[in-house]
């Protein structure tokens, strides 16, 4: 029994060592070269039981709507996603997010380019929950032309698209130089985007003070959700799966001992 357990542990340890070893190697390779030390935030969504902080996400959406959305799109998101389970405006009373009054109101707040099906004319109409977040610029060239030659990237998966993830996003937002609005310490140089946030820029409905740090945290929470909207259900399923597998492992081990009980090996 002892030797078997030892062997089992050895196998498990070896596999894990192999994976983490490689993982660390890759992470190390991808690290930045600047001297800036990333501030690590203890996010509400960290850890195996982490969930998104709903209030922070809602404030984050406000920051996105009032600040970021003048240049950055969320092209993989529809308005209805805001009311999905795990989303910032999910309400149990509205299992279908298309009925959610918040979602409807937010959608209607945007103008959507459409075609009038009777006349064929190009029209503008208020958004509905089924609409995607619209493009901000007509095309990439126009986007680049109005933003110092660099088109503002889409933000849907931004919280996953840089090494460091959500921490990177937050650090970028709080690391602009006070005198040079384009110089960013976390980026390690001049960015095409000038410092987007300043204290008191938005007025939070819940009375939270809108400091740069607070807004950066909130919008990061929102964009972390936007990049991984199914994280909560994934982690919950993970917990159930791990418990199931652990019990199964114990049962399998007992069966193994029983089947082999009379066999020297």
């Amino acid at each position: 029994m002892k030797t078997v357990m030892k062997k089992t542990l050895l196998i498990a340890a070896t596999s894990l060592a192999a994976i983490t070893g490689v993982g660390l190697g890759v992470a190390y390779a991808a690290g930045g070269s600047s001297d800036y030390e990333m501030k690590h935030v203890h996010w509400h969504f960290n850890g195996p039981f982490g969930t998104y902080d709903r209030a922070a996400m809602q404030r984050g959406y406000q920051v996105y709507r009032e600040v970021c959305s003048s240049c950055h799109q969320l092209k993989f998101l529809s308005f209805r996603h805001l009311g999905d389970k795990g989303g910032p405006y999910y309400d149990e009373a509205y299992p279908n997010p298309n009925d959610n009054p918040y979602v409807k109101a937010f959608a209607a707040d945007w103008t959507i380019q459409d075609i009038d099906l009777d006349t064929g004319d190009a029209i503008e109409r208020p958004g509905i929950p089924a609409d995607r977040f619209p493009a901000i610029y007509d095309n990439a060239a126009a986007a680049a032309a109005s933003n110092n030659g660099k088109a503002p990237p889409d933000l849907s998966v931004m919280a996953k698209a840089r090494t460091g993830g959500a921490d990177w996003l937050y650090n970028i937002l709080i690391s602009y130089d006070k005198d040079d609005v384009f110089y960013n310490k976390a980026y390690g140089g001049q960015m095409a985007m000038a410092a987007p946030l300043s204290d008191g820029m938005v007025e939070y409905a819940d009375g939270t003070e809108a400091t740069v740090d607070q807004m950066a945290k909130d919008v990061t929470e929102f964009l972390a959700w936007s990049a991984d909207p199914k994280m909560e259900v994934r982690k919950q399923t993970g917990t159930a799966t791990m418990i199931y597998l652990l019990i199964l492992a114990i049962l399998a081990y007992i069966s193994y001992k029983r089947v082999w009980r009379n066999v020297e090996h």
Binding site: A12, A252, Y256, V259, W260
Partner: peptide, 13 residues
Amino acid sequence: VKDGFAVVLFLLV
């Protein structure tokens, strides 16, 4: 049964 036990350990990872 032995493979089965190992498979479950692998599935945990």
